[in-house]
Design a protein around this nucleic acid. Structure first.
Lengths: 234, 234
DNA sequence: GACTATCTCGAACGGTGTGCGAGTCCTTTG
DNA sequence: CAAAGGACTCGCACACCGTTCGAGATAGTC
């Protein structure tokens, strides 16, 4: 099929002090977290490591493969509680929050995540632990997959949208509050023909952006988990 | 704040037969649908229109703005039933399916959607009609926003993941069946240390990719709607 | 016929990912 | 100790990208 980047390893010990894949991944992660996808270029990455741009290509076959490694790195940061600790429902809630905060830490993820499959070792381990957690809930075998997939999709979808608005605030250079008020004003003007939209916008003026986004996330996750719970086989 | 592309309009009638924004959008949509984001370049787009590459810049300020227009075009394809027709729950289900199939028709959307806000006219109208639909369900004012947001996020998250796997099949050049069997074989080998994953993989061998993805989507959406329904104020 | 607004477009700039081949170091072997 | 060969670095070059600039062409108005 294809030989994945994850299976490649060093065959002998390095001849001298040398670049390493680990170093490259770490540096690339730093660039990505602060400058986003558009801020990551092979030349810039190499410069950060005091190396020639093309030296990187000895350690990493391609930029896309490097991004694959970085994505898997993020999957490695996510907690999946074992069901014995707090039960299924609490575990799923914890998992969701852990997933959300990992994505918020790495806001470049939604932009690249949906263009490739996740089959790195950390993604695998995450899947395994997730299936164990949902398996303990009492779903039928088949529904274990469905339930876990639904939760992951909901969380990733919600937090992807969340990241989009948060990045917009960041790029605007304004503070959160002034951005919100400016945005509301703008929206009011545009939404004149849309009464429901206008009301919705007006409603949002009371809360801060942060609490509003969190509440949004929790509300849907709770509802979804409610729905899933009622599907547990009896 | 910024003057959005949508508000610009022609001030006088065109001097002669000329390129139009509409033409450009149509051609760009065709390229995007068949070749994806990486296949769309200004030069290629211009060539398709028998024009010079830089001519486009008179009609569209920037490539990013063009993509904004294309995204809004997609939002325009989505049905949101009025609640009187079939009630809230059936309407939300219909809305979800319409949203899903629109994204499947334009698989490049997830890649670009999460990097910008959606504030074009079609997005606005979509939001308006969505709020009307969810408003008819009997949620409290505040929960209308939350409920609709949850459904949109779930659908977009799920279908984004779905698109990722479908695109992978397409790019592999294999048929759906052979791809699935090859992938399962591969996964079996990789997932040796992960018993739950292995079982999950084995479970999937029975269904076709298409029915499996659809079932996945419907299962979670139903669960979420169940959870939302129980939150309707009494 | 002159003027102006609308529109087209070739040339060029500064960026991008990456293939190629020469070169440098260090370990292993004879 | 010399030779060989693997491990690794990197400058050059290529094709492509989005976009700016300024010169031109076209058509309607006075």
């Amino acid at each position: 099929m294809k030989d994945w980047i994850w299976t490649r390893e060093r065959k002998a010990s390095p001849a001298r002090e040398t670049l390493s894949r680990e170093q490259i991944v770490t540096a690339a992660m730093a660039i990505l977290d602060t400058d986003g996808v558009s801020g990551l270029s092979m030349r810039k990455l190499a410069a950060k490591l005091d190396a020639g741009a093309t030296s990187l290509y000895w350690h990493v076959p391609t930029k896309d493969d490097l991004v694959d490694l970085l994505i898997d790195e993020v999957w490695g940061e996510i907690d999946v509680p074992e069901p014995e600790l707090a039960g299924w429902r609490a575990g799923a809630l914890l998992f969701g929050h852990s997933l959300r905060s990992a994505v918020l830490r790495h806001p470049w993820l939604p932009e690249v995540m949906y263009t490739r499959p996740s089959i790195g070792p950390n993604a695998m381990s995450l899947g395994e632990r997730g299936l164990v957690l949902f398996g303990a809930a009492g779903f039928s075998d088949h529904e274990i997959d469905l339930a876990m997939g639904s939760v992951m999709s909901y969380v990733l979808g919600t937090v992807s949208a969340e990241v989009a608005t948060r990045e917009m605030v960041r790029k605007s250079g304004r503070s959160e509050e002034t951005w919100v008020s400016e945005m509301l004003e703008q929206a009011q003007a545009v939404a004149n023909d849309y009464p429901s939209m206008q009301e919705s916008v007006r409603r949002r003026t009371s809360a801060t952006l942060d609490t509003s986004l969190t509440e949004n996330f929790v509300f849907g996750l709770d509802a979804l988990l409610d729905g899933l719970e009622s599907r547990v086989k009896r």
